[in-house]
Nucleic acid binder design. Structure first.
Lengths: 334, 334
DNA sequence: CTGAAAGCGCTTACAG
DNA sequence: CTGAAAGCGCTTACAG
């Protein structure tokens, strides 16, 4: 038994103006006398009018929504990114649909479809690590703006915002080497993602620059979760020549590594130095406070939102790649 | 230079059928011969047709979106709830707009407005703790379905899903009393929220049942974050008669409490027993693993989504309140 | 500022 | 199954 929706025409009649005038007012046109404006706004309040952006945008063919597809809401890196996107979008009147893939290609497929059917004006995509060729092909044929964030798909040309992972882990690894460590493991993440490859490259580079050799047995993949960190550290801890330090795929993994060490009665930061990646808000609250590489999640989010808006308003503009430079944040875990 | 959107009429022409037929097919009508169906589906693929749910729902006056308003994405409780909502909605073709209030009434206001203008079919609202009377009045006048979750607004009648907080903290407090504790603090949360009041009631009840008295100086409010926990535990730790155990507003606060203890060179679980609330996925990974009360976040989410759907399809149906019964999960922090 | 018409991409509700 | 018409709530693009 919903009441019938109040339309602009109802408002116009109530205020004694034309529908065209009322339409100009809701869109904030300047060339309407203040007096009529007030009169119409008053009618809107009295009738309880709610502007229908969906109808408006359908007619004007301008989008009112964008899609944001991330891998995991529970990962603080992504919740920060989400906030960055939201804040940047807030002022523009755009609203975002959120989708979470949990790194599943099938889910990513479905989310993209659903969002397209809902007429999003564009999509910010943090692609799953093993995005299938079919999905890539499909994305390519999409005639709607798309911005990639965090991870880049090698075969796709489009706007991208990410950080220089290679520089980041290089920074982290160098820091450990300077502290005197020689056996340094690299824990967590999946080798199929570009984000992993780039990080590993930084790790390797740091070794090369010091003339040291990388020991492959110290490189362990895992899921990008706390549990993944626990699992990964176990695999290196019981080798005959265990590492004295570790670079982690991200802070979440680092947290797991700390846990895994404690489970083995070792003290994180003392028995093994640990560097994370992301500088998650809570990294300073870890025990011990975590040395990590800041990846500016919120900034990535707001930059991606900005790129998307620009792309929406001008499809033909030049492609942009924004690569943020990471910073090492030294705390007591190293 | 976007290509023109392919419409149902384009598809119909291409397949040599009428628009009405094509429309029946996208909506999955059964009384179409398989042969024409295949023919039309083929045309859709060839033309790259994307169904426009926005237009469809506008015409049929049935909603395709719902709003979900939570307090904090970074809180694992809410990210679980979010997943619950998403999963339940996925099958129905509804898609959700996510809004985060950070417990600000102004933000909540703005989010509700934006969602209404985007024609959501309903809203799942986890209201901010100090929701203003104006907002409440406005929500009342809303003629769209709304379901409250997690927190209840006392002056509003509507569908609600939450858990029995009173029973939860009572369980937690009783457990500590049975373990021999007498000085038990209650840390975190804001006394203006119903969720806090109910929890405190459970805490008090447990004392009453054992003939013990509550010491008001052991009840400390804080923000519902890890930092809040650190701050709160400090305030009780340096009293002349500090508590030997604590019930925390939630797991996030409990994590902060552990940290605060360590900062004071105390061992969580040994020098002070700790019970959390929520049974966040990571609670079992805390150090020490956290005794906590399970609040079934994901289930709350899916139940809220179900209630909302039912309410959308039948506005006049009887109001529902679903109160889940919490369970104590004992681990080594107590 | 007004007024009347057309259109965004669909569905509805017919008669055939 | 077809075909033509009307409508969801707006905006567009006029002539006045």
């Amino acid at each position: 038994m919903t009441k019938k929706r109040v339309t602009l025409l109802d408002v116009a009649k109530h205020a004694g103006v034309s529908r065209a005038t009322a339409s100009l007012i809701v869109r904030g046109s300047p060339n309407i006398t203040e007096k009529t404006r007030q009169k119409v706004l008053k009618s809107m309040r009295e009738l309880g009018y709610v502007y229908d952006r969906v109808a408006a945008n359908m007619r004007s063919q301008s989008p009112s929504t964008v899609g944001l597809i991330i891998t995991d809401v529970a990962n603080p890196f992504f919740s920060e990114l989400l906030i960055g996107v939201h804040n940047a979008l807030e002022e523009t009147g755009l609203i975002e649909f959120l989708g979470t893939t949990f790194d599943s290609d099938a889910k990513q497929e479905r989310l993209i479809s659903t969002m397209l059917e809902h007429r999003v004006g564009g999509i910010i995509l943090c692609p799953v690590s093993n995005t299938s060729p079919e999905t890539i092909e499909r994305i390519k044929n999409l005639d709607i703006p798309i911005v990639h964030a965090v991870r880049e798909l090698p075969s796709i040309d489009c706007d991208y915002v990410g950080i220089d992972y290679t520089a980041g882990t290089q920074l982290a690894t160098k820091h450990l080497i300077q502290k005197g460590h020689r056996r340094i493991s690299f824990l967590g993440g999946s080798s199929s993602s570009s984000a992993w490859k780039e990080r590993l490259e930084g790790y390797s580079k740091a070794f090369q620059h010091t003339g040291l050799e990388v020991d492959e047995s110290l490189i362990v993949e895992s899921s990008v979760t706390r549990q993944g960190g626990i699992d990964a550290v176990r695999k290196v801890l019981f080798q005959k020549n265990p590492p004295t330090a570790t670079v982690c795929f991200n802070d979440l993994v680092a947290l797991g590594v700390m846990q895994g060490l404690r489970d083995a009665n070792l003290i994180p930061g003392e028995d093994m130095a640990i560097v994370g990646f992301d500088n998650v808000h809570e990294a300073s609250l870890y025990n011990p406070p975590l040395t990590t590489v800041s990846s500016f999640a919120r900034l990535i989010g707001s930059q991606a939102a900005n790129l998307l808006q620009q792309r929406i308003s001008d499809q033909s503009r030049e492609q942009q790649r924004i690569i943020l430079q990471p910073e090492l944040v030294v705390r007591s875990s190293t």
